[in-house]
Nucleic acid binder design. Structure first.
Lengths: 254, 254
DNA sequence: TTTCATCTTTCCATATTATGATAAAATAAC
DNA sequence: GTTATTTTATCATAATATGGAAAGATGAAA
């Protein structure tokens, strides 16, 4: 699944895999058995790693139900990371400015495995329903402009892999067969940003643009969600220009 | 420093130590040399572990300045953990209710090593200056009611250890020698909650109460920050009662 | 620019550490 | 109460992480 780290430290690779499996699974946590099955690790090994992680509070364990979930340290590291020179604080000002200039709901999404996760958002004047909901919410990559905008600028090979993996989950969304995702990707590549006008959630529109790392790979996206009713000619292009300007600022600080 | 995990997985213990050192250090990141000195690990070992963690994006590296800091995964795990049945989501409603009932700024603090970290907050009607600032900010344990309320209910031995370690840093605060911290701890143990009225930041008052885990150990605290000017007789007791009620709810869900 | 000192990265033989088969204990299901 | 499933613990073995040493980078001072 995830590319194993170069120089090799088996134990760390395995621990990282388990963290990912737990983070991606049911928020109520995963049982040892589930993790053994998902990871393919030996039961004893898996057990040992999990308990060491619990010892360091990177994981927490519901003793009654014997389920492992992300631990208290994750809150803390997350909160700390948000203060450092990372994505969230680099985008904080941009989110605030975009929200102020347009009055719309703005959000910062990040890519994680096959999902797109909401890292931060500023609510707009109108309450709008969004795919991901609040911070921490996720959708499969392929659903929604925030996620399409990232997916569109990945390697062809990776796109194929992700869409194949997500095919079933995308089916849960309104009128979103994989072929449509491919079409959206194509349009997004040409346009430079992703647009959705009432297709996924009736009456709700979105515009989003990817943020790339030094290597040019999209790692996050910045976008708006607003009511279709507000649409006027040129609005989307206008919003896209605002996103472009902020993302230029953000990427310059890479 | 940190209690090494029971059954022993040296590599994981070391990785966890490095994560802690980086999380607790300068948000701009730490260099290899610094981490080698702090951890006591062999340079090659340290380098290998750090780079593996970077590979998994648990850490990020500023290539130009060769500094390691918390990585993108930490945002994601943090955001995810906040959704699960952990502290933040268990306290979300409480923060909102407390804010609504009083109109004051409310916060959730957690203990991490020798620091108290702001995990979540709801801003009140008046903008008040707080010790920790926004989410992710930290103060040494011993400074401020949120932090004193947790410290007060730890073992004597641990209190001594922490205050000794934090002595120098506490000196940076307004009129807070270690002896005063001890007095505040004593008062807090008797009262059941911590109070500060304009002593640390002139004109700013705070009330806070600890949240305990199943074992009765304080792991977090819930509190208010408000203007001294608002003080009326019985206000503090009233606020404390509100905190008590919410914390009872939260602890019941342990 | 050149020199020197500091810090980072790679290499590789070694033995320490993690591994996983097995069995025991604890739950859950029947 | 019995059986099936899942979670812990044990321990000999081999694969893995270790750290000394040396090469490469980087940056400061002359």
């Amino acid at each position: 699944m995830s590319v194993s780290s170069a120089g090799g430290s088996q134990l760390l690779d395995r621990a990282a895999l388990l963290l990912d499996l737990i983070a991606d699974g049911n928020p109520e946590g995963a049982t040892l058995k589930e993790l053994v099955d998902l990871s393919g690790l030996n039961t004893a090994t898996c057990h040992r790693i999990l308990n060491t992680l619990v010892g360091h509070r990177l994981l927490a364990r519901d003793d009654k139900r014997k389920r492992y979930r992300l631990g208290a340290k994750m809150f803390i590291y997350g909160a700390r990371a948000a203060r450092g020179p990372g994505l969230i604080s680099r985008c904080e000002m941009s989110l605030a400015r975009l929200r102020k200039k347009t009055g719309e709901t703005t959000h910062l999404m990040a890519r994680h495995n096959h999902d797109s996760i909401c890292l931060d958002r500023r609510d707009g004047e109108c309450v709008v329903q969004t795919l991901t909901g609040s911070i921490g919410g996720s959708v499969p990559l392929g659903a929604g402009p925030g996620s399409i905008s990232m997916l569109a600028f990945l390697d062809r090979e990776e796109q194929e892999f992700i869409l194949r993996a997500n095919a079933a989950r995308l089916g849960d969304f309104r009128d979103l067969p994989v072929e449509k995702a491919w079409r959206l990707i194509e349009e997004t590549r040409i346009r430079g940003y992703a647009v959705d006008i009432g297709e996924l959630i009736p009456g709700i529109a979105g515009v989003a643009m990817p943020i790339r790392n030094e290597a040019g790979v999209p790692v996050a996206s910045l976008g708006f969600t607003f009511l279709c009713a507000k649409m006027t000619p040129g609005l989307v292009e206008n919003y896209a220009a605002l996103l472009r300007a902020e993302i230029d600022l953000i990427e310059r600080r890479n």
